[in-house]
């Protein structure tokens, strides 16, 4: 595979499948190389003292601390609480958002009637509710649940509303001339149209839910990895702080990959996914 010295980004896209696949493998190796460069760079900065090792311990120490954590039961407990809080809040937001979205979206009157309220409530930052949930639930997981639910719900609702509104008028009219009942219309006309939007909603909401779950743990003190980070930092255990941040980052990566996987599985028939595979 010779590379011609053109700086043309569209070239690989137009290439034959075989060269593209080997190109993709090359890309993967480059990605690994990039990660290694960053890790080595951070290690060097710390070892040589360019950055104060008290603030940025060597990467090897972070990972030593990470492996130590892996052997502790309390770490797994925190991990479980964080993931559970995320999953429960996200599931509730998805269920509620899709349901409300279908109901509001299917009626023109409801759509127009609720529009101003949705547009007003949506940008209200969910962290504004922190003092309120603290008063109501203290450090119980319910605090985190409410914040996650509020933040993720609007993401889902708005996407579902777009999706339901995006139904092809011809398809809708066709369904009507075949005298489909409302349930049948919902299942075979609205649902396939809205599904890509629901999946987008899932991807966005999954990321937002994790942010709010960690925020609640860090700021309010709901048990979980976020609280552990706060404790590690205030007790001066710097390597462990970084180790936990790395864990949380990896959870974030896993969440993104999971959301993309679900999207691809659910939309295997959709042109946007099929053109990527073909």
């Amino acid at each position: 595979m010779t590379t011609t010295p053109t700086a043309a980004p569209p070239a690989p896209r137009a290439a034959r499948p075989r060269t593209r696949r080997s190109g993709r493998r090359n890309d993967a190796w480059l990605g690994v190389l990039g990660v290694l460069i960053v890790l080595a760079g951070a290690e060097l900065l710390s070892r040589t003292g360019i950055v104060n090792p008290d603030f940025l311990p060597p990467v090897t120490e972070m990972y030593a601390s990470l492996f130590q954590l892996l052997g502790e039961g309390s770490f797994w407990e925190s991990l479980w609480l964080t993931v559970r809080g995320w999953a429960v809040g996200l599931a509730a937001a998805m269920a509620l958002g899709v349901l409300v979205g279908f109901v509001i979206g299917s009626s023109r009157f409801l759509r127009e009637f609720t529009n101003s309220t949705v547009e007003f409530l949506r940008p209200i930052p969910s962290v504004a509710l922190i003092p309120l949930v603290v008063l109501m639930f203290g450090t119980k997981p319910a605090s985190a649940f409410l914040l996650v639910l509020y933040a993720a719900f609007w993401q889902v609702l708005v996407q579902v509303l777009y999706g339901v509104a995006d139904v092809d008028p011809v398809a809708r009219d066709t369904a009507r001339s075949y005298r489909f009942g409302p349930l049948r219309v919902a299942r075979s006309v609205i649902y396939p149209t809205a599904l890509p939007y629901i999946m987008t909603a899932f991807r966005l909401a999954a990321a937002v839910a994790l942010i709010l779950e960690i925020t609640a743990e860090l700021v309010i003190g709901v048990p979980g990895l976020g609280r552990d980070i706060g404790i590690a930092q205030s007790s001066g255990n710097v390597p462990e702080t970084y180790a936990l941040v790395i864990v949380v980052g990896l959870i974030g990566v896993a969440v993104n990959l999971f959301a993309r996987f679900v999207e691809r599985k659910a939309l295997w028939w959709h042109p946007s996914v099929r053109s990527e595979v073909a």
């Binding site: 860090l218 976020g226 941040v245």
Partner: peptide
Amino acid sequence: RAVPPPVLVPI
């Protein structure tokens, strides 16, 4: 991108 931004605060 995947690191939830609030954990940047302690760092």
